[in-house]
Simulated assay, not measured.
Amino acid sequence: MTTREHRPPRTGEQRRTDVLTRLEEDVDAWVATASPGGEQYMVPLSFVFHDGRLIMCTRHISGTARNIRAGSRSTIALGHTRDVVLIEAEAEQLAPDGLTPQAGAAFAAKVRWDPRGDEEYVFLRFLPRMLRAWREENELKGSVLMRDGVWRV
């Protein structure tokens, strides 16, 4: 019987296809930020991948929103431990009405929640700068699929 560890590694092109599928189909991701003093903060947030960016929403008083306002770097994790996608991203906070109508509609349709117009919430927009994806040890080599915001495959 073949185990996951014995599957041959995917090509870079296949990994990119798999990552794009995950970005389209997954609804939730883990988002890690840090305070200016270095206190780490990680929460699950729902997202939509729209125009090459991940869009999420949270209360404006949340640790994630505060950290992003302070310029925190962000790491986003998708998948589970045997199908990992790690994204280092530049993040910005937008007012509840700061999204384009198309992005707002895409978010509301995917996550089945529309916080636009609710002053308690802010949108977060993440631009991927580095993206890595792997399933097992044999895929660690070549796991960097994007660097400086440019796909390498």
Rank of each mutant, 00 (worst) to 15 (best):
E25V: 11
E24F: 03
E25Q: 14
S46D: 07
R15P: 07
P44S: 12
G52W: 09
R22G: 02
V31H: 05
G12H: 09
E24G: 15
T58D: 10
E39D: 11
P8E: 10
T21D: 08
R16D: 04
H60L: 08
S46L: 03
Q40D: 03
D28H: 04
H50M: 03
L54V: 08
W30A: 11
M42D: 01
V27D: 12
L45S: 07
R10T: 04
F47L: 03
M42G: 08
R22M: 14
F47G: 01
T17E: 15
S35V: 08
P9C: 09
S62D: 07
F47E: 00
S46Q: 11
V27Y: 08
T11F: 11
Y41S: 13
D18E: 15
A32F: 00
V19A: 11
E24L: 07
S62F: 02
L23S: 04
G37W: 00
P9I: 06
P8H: 05
R59L: 12
E13P: 08
G37A: 15
R22T: 12
G12F: 04
V48H: 12
T58V: 04
H60G: 00
L45T: 06
T21F: 01
A34C: 13
R53Y: 00
A32N: 07
R16E: 10
G12C: 14
G63L: 06
G12E: 09
R22W: 01
H50D: 15
Y41W: 11
L45C: 09
V43S: 12
V27A: 09
V27H: 11
H50C: 12
P9W: 08
C57Y: 05
R15A: 14
G38L: 01
R10C: 04
R16T: 12
P44E: 11
G38I: 00
P44A: 10
F47N: 00
D28T: 11
P8C: 01
W30N: 01
Q14C: 03
G37K: 12
R59F: 06
V27R: 14
D28P: 00
D51R: 13
V48Y: 06
F47Y: 14
D51W: 02
V31R: 01
G38S: 04
A32L: 07
G37I: 02
Y41T: 10
S62P: 06
D28M: 13
E39I: 06
R59P: 02
P44F: 03
A34R: 10
L23I: 10
A34E: 11
V19L: 14
L54Y: 03
D18N: 13
F47S: 02
S35Q: 08
L20S: 09
D18I: 09
Q40N: 05
D51Y: 03
E25F: 01
S35Y: 02
T58L: 01
C57H: 04
M56T: 12
R10S: 11
G12L: 12
P8W: 00
F49Q: 05
D28A: 14
T33D: 04
V31G: 05
V43R: 12
Y41V: 02
T58I: 02
W30P: 00
R16H: 04
F49S: 11
S46C: 14
Q14T: 13
E13H: 15
R15Y: 01
E39G: 04
R59H: 12
E13K: 15
C57P: 08
D18T: 13
A29L: 10
G52I: 06
Q40H: 02
V31P: 03
G52T: 04
T33F: 03
V48Q: 13
H50P: 04
F47I: 09
G38N: 01
Q40A: 14
D26H: 09
P9G: 07
P9Q: 05
